[in-house]
């Protein structure tokens, strides 16, 4: 469903920032991307979301060449949650979620009755009904992340891309987000980049390691736990218990 061949991208000419020779994702599930700061995680996710132009190579999403996907079509393929959202002006939560289906709106910005029902269903499912009448500025980081998740689920992209969804989020909201992602994995490809190895290893079906813009390993957690030293250049200690992996710095 996602097929990448000979992908090359650079911010400055002549210096490849990201270089992925071959990566293919064939079935739904949770895919985590791990790596150091500056290893190209965000760049990779932005490339997939068609937010960066000027790459070489080929990216196929759901059998379509990314370069040929039209603006309005991309909304049905990708749902993107950025690392940090910079809201310059306040905005109502309900409309924030509603604009997820911009591509289906009519000229006056109205959605069909069914779409509106979907919003209410989602609000209920994510337990954020009480936020419905509030504005984004008044939300906490965790609440905002849930609202963003609701927005991107409402948008309906087959591939859900989340750039560091767990940074600066408290425990309760983190747990909620993980629960929702795990429910979604049967019907969507969920791509996550994160520094939280514990979450990555315990919820992902496949883990991708990036280092200096290159892929250094892909596989399930049993395979990838031995590659960690190669990815992070340092000893990372972990304890295995009951099929789960717990990381600690070892200091």
């Amino acid at each position: 469903m996602v097929n990448i061949e000979n992908l090359k991208f650079s911010y400055t000419k002549g210096k490849d920032f990201l270089k992925i020779e071959d990566l293919s994702i064939k079935e739904n599930g949770i895919y985590s991307i791990i790596g150091e700061n500056g290893s190209g995680k965000t760049t990779f996710l932005k490339l997939l979301s068609k937010l960066l132009e000027g790459y070489e190579g080929k990216i196929d999403l759901l059998g379509k060449d990314l370069k040929r996907i039209k603006e309005k079509e991309i909304a049905n393929i990708i749902s993107y949650i950025p690392q940090k959202i910079y809201l310059h002006y306040d905005f109502p939560v309900y409309d924030f979620i509603k604009y997820g289906r911009y591509s289906k709106m009519d000229l006056f910005g109205n959605l069909t009755f069914k779409d509106l029902k979907d919003i209410n269903f989602l609000l209920e499912k994510l337990e954020i009904e009480h936020l419905k009448k509030r504005n984004c500025f008044s939300l906490s980081g965790g609440e905002m992340q849930l609202v963003q998740l609701a927005r991107s689920i409402f948008q309906g992209g087959k591939i859900l891309i989340m750039d560091e969804p767990f940074s600066n989020i408290d425990f309760r909201h983190r747990k909620k987000i993980i629960e929702i992602i795990q429910e979604l994995k049967g019907e969507k490809i969920v791509l996550i980049s994160s520094h939280d190895l514990g979450i990555c290893f315990n919820i992902s079906d496949t883990i991708v390691g990036l280092k200096n813009g290159k892929m250094v390993g892909i596989g399930n957690k049993d395979l990838m736990k031995n590659e960690l030293k190669k990815i992070f250049d340092t000893e990372i200690k972990f304890i295995e218990d009951d099929g789960k992996i717990y990381f600690y710095e070892g200091v």
Partner: peptide, 15 residues
């Protein structure tokens, strides 16, 4: 409205 929220979100929503 969407552009005032976030430009990346706007482009992936189809704007």
């Amino acid at each position: 409205d969407i552009m005032s929220i976030d430009e990346d979100i706007a482009s992936t929503s189809g704007v």
